[in-house]
Amino acid sequence: MDELEQDCLFCKIIRGEVPSYTIFENEDIYAFLDLSQVNPGHSLMIPKKHIVNLFDYTPNEAQKYLQYIPTIANAIKQFDSKITGMNITTNNGTSAGQVIMHSHIHFIPRFEGDGLTTATRNNEKKYTKADYQKIATQIKSNF
């Protein structure tokens, strides 16, 4: 546990200093109920190493920690036969809504007619083929 931060809420949860409702734990990750319970079963998965967000993962860390996403998603889905979908999200950085600076994945069960919406917009009319190509080319050059 030497890879944890002293004042991070999620590191405190991993160390057992702050109570939580565990749904899964192994040597790599810890998954627990989100107290906000956007929908019943809403859970978080965190690495047992302090990593700020996905931008900071090495390829090896991504393979080590993120491999559990399907396992946790399926266990949550099996908890209630009325679950028809699931939002699996992460907020990376404060401008994206990240509040706790320890990487975490949200698993939000979805039910038909639950009334939740996602904050997206369609800006397709603002872009030309040249605009799309320029953006794609610039991103591709970073690989």
Rank of each mutant, 00 (worst) to 15 (best):
M1K: 07
M1P: 02
D2I: 08
D2P: 03
L4S: 00
Q6M: 13
Q6N: 13
D7H: 00
C8I: 08
L9N: 06
L9P: 10
L9G: 01
F10R: 08
F10D: 09
C11G: 06
E17Y: 03
E17W: 07
V18G: 05
S20I: 00
S20Y: 02
Y21K: 13
Y21N: 09
Y21L: 03
F24P: 04
E25N: 02
N26Y: 04
Y30M: 09
A31T: 02
F32T: 04
F32W: 07
L33E: 03
L33A: 07
D34G: 00
D34A: 00
L35T: 07
Q37A: 01
P40N: 15
P40A: 13
H42M: 06
L44Y: 13
L44V: 10
P47E: 09
P47W: 08
K48M: 07
H50G: 11
I51G: 01
N53F: 03
N53V: 01
L54W: 03
F55H: 13
Y57T: 12
P59T: 03
N60P: 03
N60L: 13
E61N: 14
E61I: 15
K64T: 15
Q67F: 08
Y68C: 09
A73E: 13
N74A: 10
N74S: 12
N74E: 15
K77A: 14
K77E: 04
F79V: 06
F79N: 15
D80T: 02
S81W: 05
S81R: 11
K82N: 15
I83L: 03
I83S: 04
G85W: 01
N87P: 00
T89F: 09
T90A: 15
T90W: 07
N91C: 03
T94H: 12
S95M: 11
A96Y: 01
Q98N: 05
I100Q: 11
I100F: 09
H102C: 11
H102N: 08
S103I: 08
S103Y: 05
H104T: 04
I105A: 08
H106S: 02
F107D: 14
F107Q: 13
F111L: 14
F111Q: 14
E112W: 05
G113Y: 09
D114H: 02
T117W: 10
T118N: 09
T118A: 14
T120E: 08
R121H: 11
R121W: 10
E124N: 12
E124R: 11
Y127S: 02
Y132H: 07
Y132A: 12
Q133L: 12
I135L: 15
T137A: 12
Q138A: 13
I139A: 07
I139K: 05
F143K: 13
F143M: 13
